[in-house]
Amino acid sequence: MSHVIPYIAAIQEAIREEMERDDRVLYFGQNMATSPEDPFLKQFGPDRVRVTPISETAEIGIATGAAVAGYRPVVELYMAEFLLVATDQVVNEGTRFHFMSKGQVSVPMVMVAGYGFTAGWAGQHTGSIYGMFMGVPGLKVALPSTPADAKGLMTTAIRDDNPVLFFQNYLLLLDEGEVPDGEHAVPFGVADVKRAGSDLTLVATGYAVRTALGAAESLARRGVSVEVIDPRTIAPLDVDTILSSVARTGHLVLVDQATRHSSVAAVIAAEVAELGFSSLEAPISLVTALDSSIAYSKPVEEFVLPDEHKVVKAVEESLGLAPASA
C-alpha cells in the first residue's frame, strides 16, 4: 500500500516518524518552530525542536557535539549555499571525528539543504553544489529525485551513524508521488533503475532525473530504448549498477545540474572510463550545467542549464542517430 504526497511532505514524514521512533532524534534550524502551532514543536516539544539564529557554523557544530554525546540531530539549513558559510563544520570537523579517534566517537547527524532554485533566483541560490561534497571522507551525500526516495533516504540518513548531507531540490518540493505506507528506508549506495532500457544508459542525479526521464520518454516514441539510472546517494556511489548497465548498452550519457567540473557526472565518467572502457562503443557524453554562474535572466538561465533537448541531442550523437525532424 502507498499514499500520494509531495516530495517535501515525504521528507517531513520521515523526520516525524523517526522522531516518534527514537527520542534521540533532534530537529533544529533557522525559521522553524517559531509558532507554538508548529506541528513538530507541538508533538515533540521545545527540547527536541528548536529554532536557531543565523549561525550555520555553530548550528552544525552544536549538532556534532550532541551527536557525539548520543543524540541524532537533524539540522535544517535551507539553502545549500549556506553550507558554504560553515564549510569547516560540514567538511573538516564532524566528518573526521570517527576516523581520527580510531572509532571511539561517531557523529550521527543529518544536514538538510535545498539546492537548485533555478527559477530566477540568480547566482547564489541556484547552484547544484553537491558535487563538491562527494569526495569528503566520512561524509555521506543523499540526493533524492522522487517523494518515495526522499522519504526512504531521509529515514536511512537519520539512522546512519555518520554525518549525512541530505540535498533536497527546491523545484521538486511540491511534486507528488507514491510513497510506501509504514516504515520505508532506502539503503545508501544502491542505485535505482528508474526506467529500464537496452540501447543506451542515462545516469542522472537529483533534479536531473526528471530531465533524463523526459528525454527517455521522447526517445522511446522514436523507438530508442534508454535506461535511466539514479544513484540516489552520490557518497557512497553505486558504480557497479552503472557498469553493468553500460556492459549491456555500450553507450553512456550523464545528466547533471551541477557545473561540469564539479559534477557527479565527471566522477562517474572517470569511473566508467577506467573500469568499463571495454564496454563502451562511443565516447561518454556529459550533459551538465556550463561552468558558469546561473543567470537571473530566464533565457540565459536556460542556456546555462541542461534540459531534455540537450539530453536528446547527446543520445542521438552517442547512438549515431539522425536528429529528430523539428
Binding site: 533532534l26 527540547d47 527536541r48 557554523t57 555553530a58 548550528e59 552544525i60 557544530g61 552544536i62 549538532a63 556534532t64 557535539g65 550532541a66 551527536a67 557525539v68 554525546a69 548520543g70 543524540y71 540531530p73 569547516d88 563544520q89 573538516n92 570537523e93
Partner: peptide, 19 residues
Amino acid sequence: VVGGNLPFAVGSALAGRLL
C-alpha cells in the same frame, strides 16, 4: 582549526541537559 570545536562543547552540554 582554531575555534572549530567550540560548539561541540555546547552540543555536549545540551545533550547532558536533555539526558
